[in-house]
Design a binder for these strands. Structure first.
Length: 208
DNA sequence: CTTTGGATCGTCT
DNA sequence: GACGATCCAAAGG
């Protein structure tokens, strides 16, 4: 994935992101459901009211991860797609699990029975991949994990040097669906009518 | 399968 | 001080 491909109108970028891969360490899933948020042009966007500490990442360059906390307990992840000073983003709403299902299941808890329930929601996929506020501002296009200060036992490699598993956006060659399903966004109170949600038709891992 | 209500806290007014 | 780009358990069909 190239940064230029992610810089533009979120409504165009969103369907383009379908069938790309979101990965962290061994865990990976195919993006099957997204929503576009058009920043200053979109009353439902967190960036609608302008630059705040929370929304700062959205005002930066494209290809970075915007993570926010909601409902007092959940994290959700967005791909920033900002052409020149705009603050657009695409919310990742669901993944079809590809690899590291065992780690996902461990991270999600024993509640989950079916594989399709591991990542079929914006907060569920963050839980499955271990995405939290600590990942806000991550460059999704960075080639390699850079050595970081935090040396946690569970992330330390054989060498003893911490190798944080960073969230990445990958293209495994699967093209976006030629004609994705499209409809209204979910869970918002304003700009409800805009058809800026896109998903892979017939995919079972799309959110309920 | 669907519907309903509770949990819980960062963020901005 | 109000509310949210949600999830889950419980209960009913």
């Amino acid at each position: 994935v190239k940064r230029a491909d992610l810089s533009g109108d979120p409504v165009d970028i969103a369907p383009w992101l379908l069938n790309k891969v979101l990965a962290r360490g061994r865990r990976a899933g195919r993006i099957v459901e997204v929503e576009a948020y058009k920043g200053a042009l979109d009353a439902a966007s967190h960036a609608y009211r302008g630059l705040t500490p929370r929304t700062a990442v959205m005002f930066g360059p494209a290809g970075y991860l915007y993570v926010y906390f909601t409902y007092g307990m959940h994290w959700c992840a967005n791909v920033v797609c900002s052409p020149e000073g705009q603050a657009g983003a695409v919310l990742i709403r669901a993944l079809a699990p590809l690899r590291g299902l065992d780690e996902m299941r461990a991270a999600r808890g024993s509640v989950v029975r079916r594989d399709r329930d591991l990542c079929n929601g914006p907060a569920k996929l963050c839980q499955a991949l271990g995405i939290t506020g600590a990942d806000n501002g991550t460059d999704l296009l960075a080639r390699r994990p850079r050595p970081g200060p935090p040396v946690a036992p569970d992330t330390a490699g054989v060498s003893g040097i911490a190798v944080p598993e960073r969230v990445r956006l990958l293209d495994d060659g699967t093209p976006p669906p030629p004609s994705p399903a499209q409809g209204r966004r979910i869970g918002i109170r304003v700009a409800v009518e805009e058809p800026w949600r896109f998903w892979v038709a017939g995919e079972e891992s799309v959110s309920r």
